[in-house]
């Protein structure tokens, strides 16, 4: 009797499957960090040559760069205000109001708020430049002159305000989408129970809706804080960080030092600093807001 040739089935090594992903991560995530880390300890300038390894860049950040305190303050105001008023505040407001009005109208409004996120950053930046333009063609100038008010030059006089507004309006949609689904997931009988128990509509908002939003808001705050700290494309497009350094937060400062002044090594050192700040903020928030419970299995009501 012929025995069939049974080949023992050998499972393929999982490493082989993961290889493409590992490759991508190494080339695009890990690699740059390592390269950046190395450059930070050199004197690389515009000529892209490494003359010597040195700690001078860090000494400069801590002791000699007079702009650093201003830049940090700008970053704090920019991230704090955008986060509080727009990325969380306006987002929550939009989520609550668009779910309270008829469904189709609500979807329409949410769609409108998503538009800037879908349009190219350059287009969005140009729109803001046109809005803030102090010449008679600018939108704001036309409005103010129609009311006989003096012309405001936002980009010159209130650059920080302008970049907060521009970033906030595009950023609010993230919280809006997440919080809308959070509001929707509140069971209707919970609001009904609160109403029967004597709560006004405001009371329902405070005692039923707000508690349900607190966890997602913590996540949004952490996520958006990090994203605001590290992105600068709208600022670069709208004010260029100016006048002078008035609207330059840390991330843009890195870019300007490295690419405008050609101080690559110094930029790399600053970037290392941003990484440290990011890690510290994440850990701090994780600790303070009990993020572990956010990612823990949800406590769904027994039905």
């Amino acid at each position: 009797m012929a025995t069939p040739n049974l080949r023992t089935h050998r499972p393929a090594r999982p490493v082989l499957y993961l290889l493409p992903a590992i490759g991508l991560l190494t080339v695009f995530f890990l690699g740059p960090i390592i390269v950046n880390g190395v450059i930070a300890f050199t004197d690389m300038g515009e000529n892209l040559r490494i003359g010597k390894f040195t700690l001078l860049n860090f000494e400069r950040i801590v002791q000699r760069d007079a702009r650093i305190p201003t830049v940090l303050l700008t970053t704090l105001i920019y991230v704090g205000a955008t986060l509080f008023f727009f990325n969380v505040g306006l987002g929550a407001l939009l989520a609550i109001t668009t779910t309270a009005i008829p469904e189709r109208l609500g979807s329409f409004f949410r769609g409108l708020w998503l538009l800037p996120r879908m349009s190219p950053a350059v287009l969005y930046g140009i729109l803001w430049i046109w809005i803030a333009d102090p010449t008679p063609t600018g939108l704001l100038a036309q409005v103010t002159s129609a009311f006989g008010l003096p012309v405001l030059n936002l980009r010159n006089d209130f650059p920080l305000f302008l970049i907060i507004l521009a970033n906030g309006i595009v950023g609010a949609s993230f919280a809006m989408v997440i919080l809308t689904s959070a509001v929707r997931s509140i069971p209707s009988h919970l609001s009904n129970a609160a109403r029967v128990d004597g709560a006004s509509e405001w009371g329902v908002l405070r005692h039923v809706v707000a508690p349900a939003l607190s966890q997602p808001i913590r996540f949004i705050t952490l996520y958006q804080a990090l994203s605001l700290m590290t992105t600068y494309e709208y600022i670069l497009l709208i004010t260029g960080g100016g006048p002078v350094y008035d609207s330059t937060p840390y991330a843009l400062y890195i870019y300007r030092r490295a690419f405008e002044n050609g101080a690559y090594a110094y930029g790399a050192a600053l970037a290392l600093g941003l990484m440290v700040i990011g890690i510290v903020v994440t850990l701090l928030q994780w600790r303070l807001t009990d993020m572990r419970s956010t990612f823990a299995a949800p406590k769904i009501e027994v039905l």
Partner: peptide, 10 residues
């Protein structure tokens, strides 16, 4: 009211 799902404030 006692709701079917109890509707306790979580």
């Amino acid at each position: 009211i006692v709701f079917q799902s109890y509707a306790l404030y979580p």
